[in-house]
Design a protein around this nucleic acid. Sequence first.
DNA 1: CTGGAGGATCTTTTT
DNA 2: GATCCTCCAG
Length: 783
Amino acid sequence: MSSSDPFDLGAADEDAGAAPLPRPGGIAARAAGMAPPPYLAKLNPEQRQAVETTEGPLLVLAGAGTGKTRVLTTRLAHLLHSRKAYPGQILAVTFTNKAAREMKDRIEGLIGGVVEGMQWLGTFHSIGAKILRFHAELVGLRSDFSILDTDDQIRLLKQLIRAHEIDEKRWPARQLAGHIDGWKNRGLTPDKVPQGEAASYGNGLGTKLYAEYQERLKILNAADFGDLLLECLRLFQENPDVLARFQQRFSYMLVDEYQDTNVAQYLWLRLLAQGHKNVCCVGDDDQSIYGWRGAEVDNILKFEKDFPGAVVIRLETNYRSTPHILSAASGLIAHNEGRLGKTLRTDLNAGEKVHIRGIWDGEEEARAVGEDVEQLQRKQHRLDEMAILVRASFQMREFEDRFITLGLPYRVVGGPKFYERAEIRDALAYLKVTAQPDHDLAFERIVNQPKRGIGSTSVQKIHGYARSQGISLYRAAQNMIETDELPAKARSSLTTLLQSFSRWRTLIDGISHVELAEMVLDESGYTEMWQNDRSPEAPGKLDNLKELVRSIDEFENLAGFLEHISLVMDTGTDQADDKINLMTLHSAKGLEFETVFLPGWEEGLFPHQRALDENGRAGLEEERRLAYVGITRARKRCKISFAQNRRIHNLWQSAIPSRFLDELPEADVEVEENRSAYGGYGGFGESSFDNLDPYASSYSTPGWQRARNAHAAGKTRHADPKTIEGELVAREDADSISFDMGERVFHEKFGYGQIASIDGNKLTIDFDKAGRKRVLDNFVKRH
DNA sequence: CTGGAGGATCTTTTT
DNA sequence: GATCCTCCAG
């Protein structure tokens, strides 16, 4: 990581004596030519083929639990071991830092030594940032550009929106941020955004604001997450010589979770792969769950077309789950169209069926899960080996409450990120301003935090001056404290602050960075602010600050720390303790547990209503993949539950069991029916209290009953992929209504509006309150 | 400039 | 229910 030369292959290090990896005479030499190296022996034939097919484009379709990571890491080890490439010639990209770290650790395990010189193993974002730093000037940045996170991004956008006097209520900055992210994910610079899409924000100002935002970023010498890829892409496209050198250098490329790549990433990979063409992508189209973030399942579906001569290898032997679990998951996912298709096999013994139960409400659900957990615990099952996977994070609360009551230790995985907490961001802002005074966003964040009498009017003034002079806020402030522009109080405290900063700055190379950080936080009065705070959160915040300072210690210097923290920052979680895991389905991808609880399988929650509303059938399929991911996390036990009533933002709603329950093959599930009344369901949104049908059978979704009837009639139940989105919830108006342009309609969620355009069953409606939305016709009523 | 009161809005997933 | 924002009085 320390190399400052992008064209250092990692080989020079070795020659210089670091010898991180086998050299002639090392293990490699012994392995070469002779008996196959030991690591290959642990692989099944497909896996082995995936490892040994080193040349040319290769797509490895790795179903859940088929040893994907093992293949990836072994392949990497193999490339190094057989000396096909130096560490610095391999590009290996992952999506998460966790995945990158794991890969690194496992390679080290295989090779039996520390992997050094693997400078190009990391997330898309960190690698993009690295490349960009080498050639920053070519895209209008300096090499020490800072990386903005979502929060900074939104604050910056707000400034621009205000400057245009756009109504922030009607056009929230978040929304614009969403659009910009979306464009960046699709590889679109402002000039390439299709005309029509500009209209989607601020009466057509969308693109203009995007362009201005990009300009502001350049002035601030900053890049947001999307830029790390998009600007890198632009760099390659506009500078063929630069591209050629990278193409040349990466003799082998590995991509993990290929199904999650977005267009920008895809283009980026494709450009780079044109050199040696040895690109190996590993993924599973059935586990693509990031479509909302711009991932294109299509990338994996059309791999063979994009990379002529590509070899496709399927890994279909599942080593994780017992047959019932596997077959339940397979049965479910078979309802999706547009998949490459795989048949997962396992040699394990049948094991338990997937357990389904209906429950009265969310609280009871948590109680029931708690009981199960305790029971398993009594049978000596480890809590580590159990996980509760929820669709939406608000579901976690009930479980947390319950576990606290029971005294069950639990761990929330991927919860609010450490670095996203306000106090951490403040502290970081102080450090950033210390290191980089021109970091305007950081400066603005802490200038009056703790309160120093520098209110928004003063900040506004500094802003105006800075802009007129084309200088940073920090420098503007420096000038202004020498004038009477600011009120006396503001002026004096600002003077003190600036003096402190310059003093701290002189110490950067003088004292250890940990000491410096402590000094900055103490002397600025920031720590004191929290010490004086009597709110219940204050102690926790102080702890977090301590933790932050402690973690700085792990880095060589302040700059290194700041770079790292903007991209990574999962402070080492307490992995060691035996705790039950609580997380969203999304963050469970790639993990496995002996027992998995899947609560909240109700229409509207899972599949999530919003996914259906916004993306129709594609949204439904993604939800189904999410369900598939959930089930396939389980090794031995999978317990699904649904509640009859659920409180969603403080409103009780009756719920219908998820259609996904109907889609699980009956042979692989057992339904617990001995619970009390979980009877009929009313219309969507109505309370079942008003509408209880005492004669309804206990497990009564329409689909389930269809299945029963079909079964009774002696027919095998056909997979019914024609269940369209929203069918279960909007069947009252069974005969499809057709709408006309300009018609006034009512939508449960968005209120009244007028139809602007019609595309099949998808309507674009200008709602009076909610603005323009795309909705499905099932969900609107004629007004 | 600050702090509190009251109001509106929003709750899917995240590098 | 929680947070974020705006408005208003000191």
